[in-house]
Structure formats: structure tokens, C-alpha cells
Amino acid sequence: MTVLVRALRPDVPADAEGFARVRRLALPYILYTPDSVRHTVTHLRPDARFRPLVAEEDGEIIGTAQVHLIPDSPEPGQGALNIYVRPDRTRRGAGRLLVRAAEEYLTDLGATKLLAWALDEPANRAFAERRGYRRGRSAHFLRLDLAHGTLPPLPEVPPGVELRSAADFADDPRPLFDLDAETVLDEPSDVDVEFTDYDAWVEEVWHHPLLNRELTTAACVDGRPVAFTVAYTDGDGRYSSAMTGTARAHRGRGLAKLAKVHSLYRARAAGVAEAFTGNDTGNDPMIAINEWLGYEVCATEVRYVRELG
């Protein structure tokens, strides 16, 4: 049996379905659907030079790679490659071939630093370290059983604060972009990120097929969002927090916690069975919020970094 690596064909339904299937099996803590795969391919900024790859064995997709430059970072020359293989199709060479193809592509684009996420398991760590990658920051995946678990009581909404959904900003999502751009600056990461292109944000984020505007919740003061939680849903009973944050001038008031717990209550009422979120292991304020909500760590991933000479 021969494993071949090729580019993903987003217009071929079997490719998008195969890509999403591999990701759900290998990384069940992040939501993927064929539509979300196609959306990322067609709407990621052109300067990201995004190139998704698949590893195929006897016509079956068994591995995937997301490969791109990081255009939102003020530091040039950074490239990302995230490689995942079906757990029941490992040790066939798919991961090795995907890494080789991804590194060659990024090197040709002039990347000088490569970054890759890997689940924090012995085989994955050894795989990365053999290829010259060093361990960077780590992050937890957390899961909340909405079907059988218990949410904390809903706190009262403070005077002067109004809770609104993203759907309320359908005519003008710019205030949500401004809040997203401010909060991402303080998100712990190996990569500094700045959102400066509103039109790109609208295409990539606001029109993302997993974005649930009814469940995405913002705490507003004087009509403007000052804290929010972004909710993704996959139509299969699963919910994911894509971002939660508070504007600097309004921190310490519990507004992010308020937005997130209200979103989860509405998600449960809508029939969502389980919720996922992710935390940098050094993000103590967000870890405290998620523990209060009842989330439990279900996996850990590590970002590996390789500097190119």
C-alpha cells in the first residue's frame, strides 16, 4: 500500500469530507465540517498562501495538513504546519510525507520560522523533536457535558450592561471586529497577532459557516460590546468557544464570564450536548472562568517551533 501526498481539492466533496473526517477523529476537540474546510480554503487571506494537503492511501484520505504563512503577525517569515493523521492509520509514513511537503512549500515561500501544534503525547513529541522542533507553549482542550452536567446559576446582569447576540450586529459587525482586534493583542501565544484588515475579518470570521450568531454573546455598555464569547456549532450537537475576551478598560468586572455562561445556557436550551474550549496553560483568568463553568481538561497540545538557518 502506497501513501501519496497531494493538494486538497476543495471543489471535490469527497476531499472536504475526508479532510473533516480525519480532523474529527484525530482532534475531536475542535469542530470541523466539510463546509468549514471549504470556507477556510476559499476565504483565508491571499497573503497567507494557504495550501491544505492530504495524505491518501488506496483512494482514502488518512492524513491532513494545514500549511500557510501567518499574515496577521507583525513578525514576518513565520509559517504554520498542522499535521494530523487518523489514529487508526498511523505508522504508514503519512505524517512524515506531509511534514516534508509542508516544510518544502513554506521554505520556498521564504519562511524562517515554522510553528506546529501537536497533541502532548510521547509519540507526537518524539516525532516533532526528531525533526528539529523545540517545545514552546502548551494549551489545554476542555470539555463540558451540557447534556448531563450542571451549569452554575446565572449571575445577574450588572446595571448599565446589556447582553446582545452577534445577530444584533448583522447590519454592522464593525464593533465586534474592534473588540476582537483589541482582545487578541493580549492572548497568550508564541505568535503575536494583530487584526488590522476589517474586510478580511468579515470574510474569514464573520461569514464562517460554524459561527453561530445567535449563541455568540456580547456584554455591551452604551450600546458597544466590551466583552464577548464567540460560539461555533457544527449542527451535530457540539459547541466550541472560538474566542472569549474583554476590552482592557472593562476587565475585572466578570463580563466575559457573564457572556459565556449566558451563551452556554442558550446552547443547552437549543439542544447542544457538549461544549469545547481551549486555554493556554498560562492564561489563569480564563482557566478560572472555565473551571467555574464546569469544564474539564480532556487533552493538551504543545506548539513546536523550528528556526530555519
Rank of each mutant, 00 (worst) to 15 (best):
T217Q: 08
E203N: 13
A118Q: 08
C220F: 07
V37R: 00
Y32V: 04
A65F: 01
P152V: 03
S73E: 00
P122A: 03
A259I: 03
L106R: 00
P173A: 03
G79C: 01
R306S: 05
L151W: 05
D145H: 06
S73K: 06
P46Y: 01
L308P: 07
P28G: 10
A275K: 04
V297R: 09
E194D: 14
T150F: 11
F141L: 13
A139T: 08
L146A: 07
T64K: 04
A139M: 10
P175L: 02
D47E: 15
T107S: 13
N124H: 12
L211Y: 01
L264G: 06
A55G: 12
S138H: 10
A111G: 11
R100F: 03
T300Y: 03
R268D: 08
V202Q: 06
R238A: 10
G237M: 00
M243P: 00
Y295G: 04
F228L: 14
A269S: 13
Y304H: 08
A94R: 08
S263K: 09
Y295P: 07
K260Q: 13
K257D: 07
V261H: 09
A80S: 15
F127V: 05
H68T: 05
T33P: 07
D35E: 15
L264V: 09
P155G: 08
L44P: 07
M243F: 14
V12A: 14
R131F: 03
H43L: 12
G237W: 07
G294S: 00
D234L: 01
V3Q: 02
N279K: 03
E56G: 05
E57N: 12
E60M: 11
H39I: 02
A275L: 07
Y239F: 15
V202I: 03
R125H: 12
L163D: 06
A231Y: 02
Y32T: 09
R266L: 14
A259E: 03
P152F: 02
T183A: 14
E60G: 12
R268M: 10
F228M: 15
R130G: 10
F169C: 09
R303E: 10
A14T: 14
T33Q: 07
Y29R: 10
T33D: 03
G237L: 05
A80Q: 13
A80Y: 01
D171C: 08
N82S: 11
A242E: 14
E307K: 12
K260H: 12
L179G: 10
R268G: 14
L97Y: 05
L255G: 02
A242D: 13
A247Y: 00
R266C: 03
P76Y: 05
P159T: 13
A181C: 09
T196C: 10
G136P: 01
D58T: 09
R253F: 06
D180R: 14
V205S: 15
D180G: 12
D15P: 07
S189F: 04
E296R: 15
I30A: 14
T112H: 14
F195I: 06
A299F: 00
K113R: 15
L255R: 02
R38M: 01
H140R: 13
R130N: 08
R38V: 09
E187T: 15
D72C: 13
E291T: 15
A128F: 05
G223N: 00
V191E: 11
T42C: 13
F169R: 04
